[in-house]
Design a protein around this nucleic acid. Sequence first.
DNA 1: CTAGTGGCTGTGGTTGGACCACACAAAGTA
DNA 2: TACTTTGTGTGGTCCAACCACAGCCACTAG
Lengths: 228, 228
Amino acid sequence: MKAYELVLQRIEAEISEGRLRIGDRLPGERALAERFGVSRTSVREAIRVLEVMGAIRTAAGSGPDAGAIIVAEPRSPLTSALRLHLATSHLPIADIVQTRVLLESWAVREASGKAGAAELAGAERLLDAMDDPGLAPEQFHLLDAEFHVSLSALAGNVLVSTVMASLRDAIHGYVMAVVPELPDWETTAAGLRREHHAVLRAVRDGDGDAAASLVAAHIEDFYRTARL
Amino acid sequence: MKAYELVLQRIEAEISEGRLRIGDRLPGERALAERFGVSRTSVREAIRVLEVMGAIRTAAGSGPDAGAIIVAEPRSPLTSALRLHLATSHLPIADIVQTRVLLESWAVREASGKAGAAELAGAERLLDAMDDPGLAPEQFHLLDAEFHVSLSALAGNVLVSTVMASLRDAIHGYVMAVVPELPDWETTAAGLRREHHAVLRAVRDGDGDAAASLVAAHIEDFYRTARL
DNA sequence: CTAGTGGCTGTGGTTGGACCACACAAAGTA
DNA sequence: TACTTTGTGTGGTCCAACCACAGCCACTAG
């Protein structure tokens, strides 16, 4: 077994057994190297891996925020992995869109009637912000992504909403590359706004079936228009 | 920007632009270090990350299989990330089960009628192997996992089947830990076998709705029995 | 002539040591 | 009291070696 794998295993075990919890600080790299009987380099490789996996956050310097701190950021590793495998062309964009439709329509159906006014407030605020007619496409899409993610979060499934967010992040670049090609951005945006409001209304009214089919059509329409 | 991030970015860009394709070999670590103007250490950290992300495979020695080779193994990073975040207790098992039900019932519905005899042959062979009454629980569950994954693959969505496989892998340890607690393994196994055959039959007959509800009940039943 | 053997070479894997930039904390100073 | 300086511990980076490994190749014993 490689040295960094050993370190990885040991640290993961400590997290698993609850000896390390979120917010805790790992010992310094030099201390870990000594404890595990490996070089600091190997410890660093393990730390790197944990960092890109979203399990820890590192910062130099001293003080309470310095060092390697246990966090739970499941979104970033999913996003990176998706982006990377999208790049190898072994993961068709069509599959991503299909998965989005699947997850998101399930989420809004699940959320319908279940989500109270307080939970819906965040989504409404995003829609309000998107109503600004002077918004640049880039800003619009960032808000759009946030809206869809917050909608998915209403279903209360951490995994689903995390995957949703990662899917959005991973294809964001592709979407933005295609926006300038659109024949009429203003018209497209107006349609998107209208559809967003309709979806949110269905969720608020507790009409799960309507919300699901609306959101599915909304997503599929956009990708058809964008020819992705 | 950190040095290893720069290396990561450059290599990812080369993959993205098609200059590096699956099966290609990366230049040696020493050569990359010189090309990017960083130390070999930083190159190695980037390589490590790409490795755990399932984008490359490394091997020492010489010959055609040695060095860092571009691969596409999207399953392993998802599995590791899930396992890791499962360990931090910020990802409830219930969410994973719910997601499994969601994805898998969609997959079998999609596959119903679409999958031909050739595609179904693999799944049937697995069920035959699971009919062996002397099978140990561990072996049974490995075959079980394979069956569910091959079932999901029938829908033809790479992302969905990959996520499915990762979900199974990530919770495999939890499942195996609970099997010895079951009051009567043989009875449980018999039920699982029966349900598997029923699901496969529905898929073969093109009855998507039946297949979806059968597989959903199958999964939920098992986790209820296992009290996970 | 063939089969085996040993060294050569290039690969990733690992180590120890050195230095840097950073950020806070504490001691010193106006 | 308020500011400045110094100290200390953190991660970030680099370097120069050495190891283990695996293929390749020339040499040698049969």
